[in-house]
Structure formats: structure tokens, C-alpha cells
Design a protein around this nucleic acid. Structure first.
Lengths: 107, 107
DNA sequence: CAGAATCCTAGGCGATACTG
DNA sequence: CAGTATCGCCTAGGATTCTG
């Protein structure tokens, strides 16, 4: 539980997961794909996720460097969980948008 | 999704949720129940969760102050989600065996 | 292009003291 | 007992620069 949170508890990790769930991507692609993250952060998060076995990194020793990232099986196995979280969030926002008078605030 | 993480993304919130899932508790009880949290943090987290509609706070204007916390329906609705997360984590630890990630918490 | 190294700042969070 | 207010450390994380 706390372990899981440590693995994906940051917003960046979740965003990376989402980006990569649509398939393999290069570093710059990833970087551009999710505005607002510094490349330092991106690199750092990716490294951790790689160490945690969620992401696979494939580097090609070419002159213009090319590094591709993709989800491992473990990483993909998170999708249902994230979906559950997302669904709950959706419902939460929904509920909060339609407040029902059920006598919520007693005395 | 990000919204949900904002609501429960911290380890403390999750622990509070767990504590309260076993029923209503007083402040000090909560405080003792989950070692390692400062009362400032506890208060702060509780206030946020209250504002987010996850927790209900009931204060009694008595001479020895008594404040009781419990989960709202919304808070309880998180349980399945948290269970899913916990289950995934359990499986992860199982699969990975003993995942010792370096740089996590150097003693 | 991908990333490592450096610098620097806001603020998260713990510890402590005070109050009703 | 259940907070609030204050101080101060520490590190997360952004911006910038350099390299292969």
C-alpha cells in the first residue's frame, strides 16, 4: 500500500504511465507530451520507475542519441488500478458538482 | 485522477483513512494509533480531508475537549479503490520478491 | 537528442511552546 | 485534550549550463 504509493504516488509518475500506456515513446516526445515537467524531473522519475520495474528503457548508441521508453508488463498491470482511481475521481467530481441535501452538517 | 491523488496521494491521508475505516475515533486516539505523525500534520491532514468531504469532524464543547472523527460516505467509498491499490502492491512485492530500491531511505 | 552536473529557492514538515 | 502559532531544517524540484 504505502509501497505502491511510493511507486506511483507522484503526479509525474502517473502522467508518465498514462503517456506510455499509449505505446512506446522517445524521451523528447515524452517531455513535450506532458508539459510542465523539467527534463531533470522526467529523467529522475523515469530512472526510478525503471529501477522499480515499471518502465523499460532502450538506448541506441547512435550519433543522434535515441532513447525509447515503454511500459513493462508490471507497468501495464497498473492500468486497472489507475483506472479504478480515475473512475473514483470522476465520480467524486460528479458528486461534488451535484450536492444533495442529506443533512450532512448536524449541529 | 490527479484530483484523486491530490485527495489521498499522501501516506498520511491513506493511514488516516485506514484508521478511521475501523470506526469513529478521537483525535488523540488517532494520533497515538499512527505513530510518527506530528499533531500539526495530523490536524492539517484532517482539515483538508474534512474540506474535501472525506472525513466528518464532530466537536463537543465540553470542558475536557472531545473531538471525534469518522469517515463520510465519500470517504468510505474510497475503500475499494484503496483495496485495489493494496492488492496490487501485495502482488508487486510478491512478484518482485525483495525489491530493494537504492536511494529510498539511506540509513 | 538525451542526460548529467550545478545552483538556488519555496515550502513541507518536525519540534517546541502556548491556550481554552 | 485538541488544537494553534512559531521557528528552522531540509530537500524536492525548477532553471541553467555543458557534453557526447
Amino acid at each position: 500500500m504505502e509501497k505502491t504509493l511510493a511507486l506511483i504516488g507522484s503526479k509525474w509518475k502517473v502522467l508518465i504511465l498514462r503517456e506510455l500506456s499509449s505505446g512506446l515513446k522517445r524521451f523528447g516526445e515524452l517531455h513535450r507530451g506532458m508539459g510542465g515537467i523539467s527534463q531533470k524531473m522526467l529523467t529522475q522519475q523515469l530512472r526510478q520507475m525503471e529501477a522499480d520495474g515499471l518502465v523499460r528503457r532502450r538506448a541506441y548508441a547512435e550519433v543522434p542519441p535515441r532513447v525509447e521508453y515503454s511500459l513493462t508488463a508490471t507497468g501495464r498491470s497498473l492500468e486497472p488500478v489507475l483506472a479504478a482511481v480515475a473512475q473514483w475521481g470522476q465520480r467524486y467530481l460528479d458528486t461534488q458538482g451535484h450536492p444533495e441535501r442529506s443533512g450532512e452538517n448536524p449541529a
